[in-house]
Amino acid sequence: MGIQDIIEGKRQWRAHLARVKALPPDYQIVYKEIQRYYFKVGPLELTEGDLLSGLVDFFEEGAAAGKGVLELIGDDVAAFADGLIKDSRTYADVYQESVKQKPRK
């Protein structure tokens, strides 16, 4: 499974992106930057949960209520992004654990 298949297959992924595109511009910017951040950090929720689609749900609600995106999540976007993956393990964690289990010769 790949990141592009996050939401069960490419068609859903495209539908997901269409939802992102329907958001107001400020929301789109913040969504994209958060997604990019998650690609680097690599939380397991990216592929195993509904982290991104849940985020779009939340953004759609905020936009529908007529709020600006920073009004909704605060100025510290990174703190918000980290809050969403607070207890989540990352691919790097999993990798590091596998290294410890199989020590190098």
Binding site: G62, A64, K67, L72, I73, G74, F80, G83, K86, D87
Partner: peptide
């Protein structure tokens, strides 16, 4: 405290199975 902060907390409560979540239609939006 902004909505985003509350959202991250609610998500955690849901993940830790401390709350029951029900989706209901709203007058405005989703």
């Amino acid at each position: 405290v902004v909505e985003g902060t509350v959202y991250t907390i609610l998500l955690r409560l849901e993940k830790n199975k401390l709350v029951q979540v029900t989706k209901r239609p709203s007058e405005q939006g989703p």
